[in-house]
Amino acid sequence: MNYRELFQSVRRRPILHGLDATYKAGVAFILGCDAGTSGILLSGFREWLIVRLNDGNNLSWPGLVLQIISVEFVGQNEEQSDVEAQRFDRLFRLLDEFLEQRDERDGMARIYSHYIEWLNDQSWFCPEMLK
């Protein structure tokens, strides 16, 4: 299955996939797809988000996406429905960006390499933690 195409379709027309275009519905849909691949689909997504945010090693990927969105949309006063629609759209755009990079030659290796570099730059990180 081509998940990038599926997620692009969901982002464009959530109602056709039984979704109400809320952040929670998008996360649930993505988690279901990931479960269907035994967790392989989202391998590296959390690490990619941490490096992108430069923070959040203690968060799950849905929390990291919300942090990225909150940084991007600081100071915007929108209607709640607009906020949900923006969160939904941004969630799927971030996921598409990740999948594009992951599918490049050596993409997964680069994602984890950048994450390890990021970890090594953290004052709290002890390399023995990886053993």
Rank of each mutant, 00 (worst) to 15 (best):
I40R: 15
L41I: 05
L42I: 07
S43L: 12
S43T: 11
G44R: 01
F45R: 02
F45W: 02
R46C: 04
R46Y: 07
W48Y: 09
W48P: 01
L49I: 00
L49K: 02
I50A: 03
I50K: 08
I50F: 07
L53M: 09
N54F: 02
N54T: 05
D55G: 00
D55K: 07
N57A: 06
N57G: 12
N58Q: 09
N58W: 03
L59S: 07
S60Y: 10
W61Y: 05
L64K: 06
L64A: 04
V65G: 06
V65K: 00
V65N: 01
V65H: 01
L66F: 06
L66K: 12
L66N: 09
I68F: 09
I68Y: 09
S70N: 13
V71P: 02
F73Q: 12
F73D: 10
G75E: 03
G75C: 02
N77M: 09
E78Y: 13
E78I: 07
E78S: 11
E78G: 05
E79M: 15
E79I: 15
E79C: 12
Q80A: 15
D82V: 11
D82Y: 11
V83P: 06
V83F: 06
V83W: 04
E84Q: 13
E84K: 07
E84W: 08
E84G: 08
A85N: 11
Q86H: 15
R87G: 10
R87L: 14
R87I: 05
F88K: 03
F88H: 10
F88S: 06
F88I: 11
F88G: 08
R90M: 13
